[in-house]
Design a protein around this nucleic acid. Structure first.
Length: 269
DNA sequence: GACAACCTGACC
DNA sequence: GGTCAGGTTGTC
């Protein structure tokens, strides 16, 4: 489900609702969502949430006990605030109890996961260390040289979290359309001018998507259970067979890098 | 780079 | 019954 704008939306909601709040209790309903190792609850119970940040598509919840809860939402993960004592549904895997509300971690497909690590250990976590910068964390020149230095199809390259983090299937399609780059273009051969446009497009689209509180295709909702609006602004994603809003040509849907890619064969070359 | 694997649900 | 889905990881 979630790419950078959706994860940022959740992070903003978490920050507003639980920063400075204390975790009263935790109910773990599904053990297997803890990927690295099963956590000690006493490392979390009684702790205050000191900060919530996003790294790529990861959510990092810092606790006053010097531990960090690292969460990846996978495809269908959700963090939703509900009334104290609300009954978990069949896909609720963890319940965090706060004074004013409970926070349910739900995930239908269970591709998401959590880890609890100490602040010290965080620096040694491989899957965080290998994350590339997101488009807001780098300058245009750096972005261009990263892309130019690889010899790969641009869409799978943009989706590779080790190179640039935060982009997934929706936003890579939307960004490439805006920059008028064909998703199969080989990164090293794309002109600098086009890559400059790609950089601007990435930041612009992500910013607008965050303002719209994400894209809800089927599952995504924010911390209050409300859907995002950016799906209404998609120009290519999910529009295969329909006409391009820019030139009228038929939008194509093709498998590229084992994922469905949506693009306009006339606008994107 | 292509694929399968990990899962459940929606849709045809 | 089959296909598809906002992701990641590991194998050829």
């Amino acid at each position: 489900m979630p790419e950078l704008p959706e994860v940022q939306t959740i992070v903003d909601d978490l920050k507003n609702k639980i920063r400075v709040a204390r975790i009263i209790d935790i109910k773990i309903l599904t053990k297997s969502i803890w990927r690295y190792k099963y956590p000690r609850k006493r490392s979390m119970i009684g702790a205050k949430v000191s900060d919530v940040i996003r790294r790529g598509k990861y959510i990092l919840i810092y606790l006053s006990t010097n531990n960090v809860l690292v969460i990846h939402l996978g495809m269908t993960g959700k963090l939703i605030f509900v009334k104290v004592g609300s009954k978990p549904d069949k896909h609720t895997h963890v319940v965090f109890k706060f004074p004013d509300s409970d926070l349910h971690y739900n995930d239908v497909r269970r591709f998401g996961f959590m880890d609890l690590v100490s602040v010290d250990a965080l620096k040694g976590i491989a899957f965080l260390n290998k994350l590339g910068p997101d488009p807001f964390e780098i300058e245009m020149g750096e972005f261009i040289s990263i892309i130019k230095s690889k010899n790969r199809m641009i869409k799978p390259l943009l989706m590779n979290q080790d190179i640039i983090s935060g982009l997934g299937n929706i936003y890579s399609d939307e960004i490439l359309f805006k920059a008028r780059i064909h998703p199969r273009s080989i990164s090293s051969r794309i002109r600098k001018k086009k890559l400059a446009k790609l950089y601007d497009s990435a930041r612009e689209i992500l910013e607008r998507a965050i303002e719209a509180r994400g894209s809800s295709i089927s599952d995504f909702v924010d911390g209050s259970g409300v859907r995002g609006e950016y799906q209404n602004s998609h120009l290519v994603y999910g529009r295969g067979g329909q006409s391009c809003k820019r030139c009228g040509a038929k939008i194509k849907r093709e498998i590229i890098g084992s994922r469905s890619a949506h693009f306009c064969p006339r606008c994107q070359r």
